[in-house]
Structure formats: C-alpha cells, structure tokens
Amino acid sequence: MSAAYPWLVADIGGTNARFGTVAGPGAAVVDVRVLPVAGHADPAAAVRAYLTDRPAGQTQPQSAAFALATALHGDRIELTNGAWGFSRAATQAELGLSTLLCLNDFEAQALSLPRLKPHQLRAWGEAPPATEAVAAGTVMAVIGPGTGLGVGGVVRAPGRWLALPGEGGHATLAPADDFESAVLSHARREFPHVSAERFLSGIGLPVLCRSVAAALGEGEDISGLPTEQIVARGLSGESPACARTLDVFCAMLGGFAGSVALTLGSRGGVFIGGGIVPRLGERFFQSQFRARFEAKGRFQSYLEGIPTALITDTLAALSGAALALEQAEA
C-alpha cells in the first residue's frame, strides 16, 4: 500500500537543492523552493529549513525521495561536486521519515521524461513522441550540463518506467576535428583524463575556455573567468575566446549526445537538461549541436531519426523523483 501523502521530493545538486511536495497520486509538485547547498550543513538541515517555511498547519511528509548528484552505493553518500556528505539511515531517522528513497539525480531526470509536457520542452526540429505513443522497450536519454554533467536513460516496460542510471558524464571526451584535438591537448596538460564533464559543465566551462584560448593563440587573458562571465561575454561577443568556447561547447555536446544515443539506443529521443544550455538561448539552436549529433559516419541515418529537445523546465527532475517514489511505494 502506498505511504500517506504528502510526499517530500528533492533534487540535490552541487550548488542548489530544490524541494517540493506531492499531495497525491500523479499530482504536480508544489511548494517548490530552491536552497543553496553551501548555506546548510546537510540535507536534513535544508529539509528543516524548507518545511519551516511551508504554510502553518500542513501535514509533515512521512515519505521522501532525494535525487542526488553522485553515484550511490551503501549508506554513506558524498556529493560529487558539493559539500554534503551524510548517512541516508541517519538522515531518515533525524527527519522521522517512514521512507527515504535515494536515487541518482539523472535517474530522477530520466524518470521525468515520461511526464514532460510540450510547454516544458523546446524541440530541435521534430518533437519527441508523446508518452502515450511510446512503445514498450523504447529508450529515451537525458544529458544535463549543470554544475557537473549528468547522463541517464529510461525505458518503457509493461506497467512502469525503468531508469538506467550511470555516470556517463565521466566518459572520455573525443575530438571531431584538428582544432578540438588542440583544445583537448591543452586540457591534458592540466588533467590526465579529460572527461566530458571536464568541458561540458559549469565546473568545466572555465577549463574549456582556457584550453580554447590557448589553442587560438591570440593572447587573450581569460584566466579566472567563472562560467557565468564566460557565457555572458561569449553571447555578447565581447570576448572572441568566450564566443568560440560557446561554439565548441555546443558542438562537442552534440557529438557526445550522439554517442549516448548510439550507446543506449535511445530511439525515443535525447533530451538536454541542466541549467547551462537554457542560458544560451538562440545561440544553442543556431549552433552545430544537431549537425554533430548526427555526424556518426555509417550511422548518420540512424541518428537522423532520433529527436532531440531542450528541457526548459529546470525543476523537471522533481517530478521524476515523485515517479520513482510512486513506483517504489506501489
């Protein structure tokens, strides 16, 4: 039997933790609030802060699902790019929860895909199929450049959706031309392994920008620029290195997305989440993303038939956490 509502759901990244509640089966996530990870000692402290600010008289949640930006194994959880480390058992006891489900953040992001509505997406060309039109066995994939780089998948099974969690963001990144080879060569002077996350993420954009500037060889000083300024200067055209960085970012993201599509066989679509790409606006849709997505030699025609779309709703993973809890409690 399902646990009593309301449920608490959370999407916890390296920078921000998003919280919301679910009032009943299939209900929308409401009372959403975003809290900074650095502003709280641990998830329990952040949950208490969130619950304190809810309207008086509301029932306290007895079940919760935490989507976490890290690999999960055992009781101890450490965020990959964040300060929180905690015991799931101790956190459950401290918060008085009957159920605490912990899942990878891109497991939750993948589970959000079946519940996405057209207003939460912007398709690149043909729109992905509606959920009701997705046949059993169909795979969909999601890639999210945020603080880090998340990758996940979901497959439709009879009566439920099965998430395919993983750590694909740490797969080795491949160049597609001589300039990208030069960029990667410069990055390898800092890092022995250049993963996709080293370039295609919030923590990675400064690395990518330094490497692009070095490969351009024009002497532009971009040292110390944070991701926000790289994006702003690149969009405005103020900095040639930052502008080229955004172009390389979009192109390499497309190539990486195509590799994920081939690996998972995600004929149901590849979705781009995370907080970085929505900031790029039209720059993303005018970029080489889709061309590079399809540029896989003999399998170009295979990829031409796979839709791609940007998730414009940055809170979508909360609905995926809710679905995970719903299926676990069924």
Rank of each mutant, 00 (worst) to 15 (best):
L200N: 10
L173E: 03
H193Q: 11
F179W: 04
G159A: 13
S201T: 03
S201F: 01
H193R: 13
A171N: 13
E218S: 07
E220L: 02
S181Q: 14
E190G: 12
S195H: 13
S181I: 00
D221C: 03
G168T: 10
A176H: 10
S211N: 01
A215E: 00
S211P: 11
R189S: 07
L173R: 09
R189C: 03
R210K: 11
A171E: 07
S201C: 01
D178Q: 12
R198T: 09
V212W: 05
H186V: 08
G159D: 07
L164G: 05
A157G: 15
H186T: 06
L205Q: 06
G204D: 03
G166Y: 08
P175G: 11
T172H: 05
R189Q: 14
A214Q: 10
S211K: 01
L184A: 07
R198W: 04
G169E: 04
V183K: 03
S185P: 06
L164F: 04
A196S: 12
S211D: 01
A176Q: 06
A174C: 10
A157S: 15
G204L: 08
S201N: 00
S211H: 05
R189N: 02
H186F: 13
H193F: 11
G168R: 10
A187M: 09
L208C: 03
E167I: 06
A171R: 14
V194D: 03
A171S: 14
P165M: 04
A174T: 10
A213C: 05
L208P: 07
V194T: 09
L162I: 13
L173Y: 04
D178G: 14
G202F: 04
E180F: 09
A157C: 15
A157R: 15
F191L: 14
V207L: 05
G168P: 05
P175F: 15
S201R: 01
